[in-house]
């Protein structure tokens, strides 16, 4: 029996218990029925919105926005991060400006983006780009700055030019840090796409959830949240898979060092 309490099963058991309590609470009116529909009702709603393709449309739109913003952010931020990390002068020059821009909570940029780009996809992609860029930038910089000087001198003694040095030595050496930044930015992209869709949109999963709440389609609201959680989980898993593949060498190295 004590085996149960330390294992995964206790956790699943606990989860199951919570779901059952939820079901009972909704069914027997322990809490306001409107706010707490029984779990089964939520699951039915979930099935409906997925089967009808309704929610998938919204998810697709959100993914497109988030993906574009994320991809562009990665491109810009990694490039800048390498430059800022490698040349002290660049870092010292741009540090204050970067820190100031970074301190702006991304939602505050939304109104500015609306002014210039309206309330369409462009605005959302820009917001996501803006928010994702900073974690990637900071982590890339950190990574580049912690590249062992011996590695750089080695490349130079082999006569590598600056470009080849950055591409073949500095970037791979810094890649574990870059991956950390990319992982953080992934979560941020999702958060911001939801936010931007709640503040001004007519599509996307964020809009879907808020709209469901406003029109009091509560089971659908919960169902939407589940879909979003599932989306987040899936994206994370994909990232971890890619990370395991690409960074296998680093995992091995750090395992040895322990």
């Amino acid at each position: 029996m004590s085996r149960f309490w330390g294992s995964r099963w206790s956790g699943f058991g606990f989860l199951l218990l919570l779901v059952l309590v939820w079901e009972a609470a909704g069914r027997y009116g322990w809490v306001h029925k409107l706010f707490f529909p029984p779990a089964t009702k939520i699951l039915v709603s979930l099935f409906q919105i997925v089967a009808s393709g309704e929610v998938l449309g919204h998810v697709g739109v959100s993914l497109w926005r988030a993906g574009l913003g994320y991809g562009l952010a990665a491109l810009v931020a990694i490039t800048l991060g390498v430059l800022m990390g490698y040349w002290r002068v660049v870092y010292e020059s741009f540090e204050i400006v970067v820190e100031l821009l970074r301190a702006i909570p991304p939602p505050a940029i939304i109104p500015v983006a609306i002014v210039f780009l309206g309330i369409g996809d462009q605005m959302k992609v820009f917001i996501i780009l803006f928010s994702c860029a900073f974690p990637i930038l900071v982590n890339t910089m950190d990574g580049v700055r912690s590249v062992d000087p011996v590695l750089i001198r080695t490349a130079r003694t082999f006569g590598l030019g600056q470009g080849a040095l950055l591409w073949k030595v500095v970037l791979p050496a810094a890649s574990p840090f870059v991956m950390t930044g990319l992982r953080i930015a992934l979560a941020i992209a999702l958060i911001l796409v939801v936010i931007s869709e709640m503040v001004g949109a007519t599509s996307g999963i964020g809009y879907f959830i808020l709209d469901a709440q406003r029109s009091f389609r509560i089971p659908q609201m919960y169902a939407g949240m589940l879909v979003l959680a599932l989306l987040g989980y899936t994206l994370n898993r994909c990232f971890l898979l890619a990370d395991a593949r690409l960074m296998a060498w680093h995992k091995g190295l750090t395992a040895r060092q322990r």
Partner: peptide, 13 residues
């Protein structure tokens, strides 16, 4: 289960 859900999604609820 809860962790991957972006926190703004809790605003409507």
């Amino acid at each position: 289960l809860l962790r991957p859900m972006p926190s703004p999604a809790t605003i409507p609820i």
